[in-house]
């Protein structure tokens, strides 16, 4: 089952060798550790480049989006098993 969220979140991660690896994110006052990044891709929304990370935390898969222009993070979607 998937659910569209579209809320701003904060993300903590490591910047190394010119690439950023998200390690945890905070949404609704709850911190979610990122156990695995399954996919990263970029897309262009008009002239804004956005980078999407699909990450596993606990039993769920979260789609995080980094807006390179505003330098903000958004939780786009959650997939729950079943």
């Amino acid at each position: 089952m998937e659910q569209t969220i579209g809320e701003t979140i904060s993300v903590l991660g490591i910047f190394k060798n010119a690439s950023f690896t998200p390690k945890k994110f905070k949404w609704n006052n709850h911190t979610y550790p990122i156990e695995n990044i399954t996919s990263i891709h970029e897309l262009k929304d008009g002239e804004v480049v956005k980078r999407r990370y699909a990450v596993l935390s606990g039993p769920n898969l979260y789609l995080l989006e980094y807006n390179r222009q505003d330098e903000t993070w958004e939780l786009v979607q959650i997939w729950m098993e079943g």
Binding site: T38, A54, L56, L61, W79
Partner: peptide
């Protein structure tokens, strides 16, 4: 395959 790569549940 790309969808399955992104979402392990698939």
């Amino acid at each position: 395959t790309i969808e399955q790569q992104q979402n392990p549940y698939l």
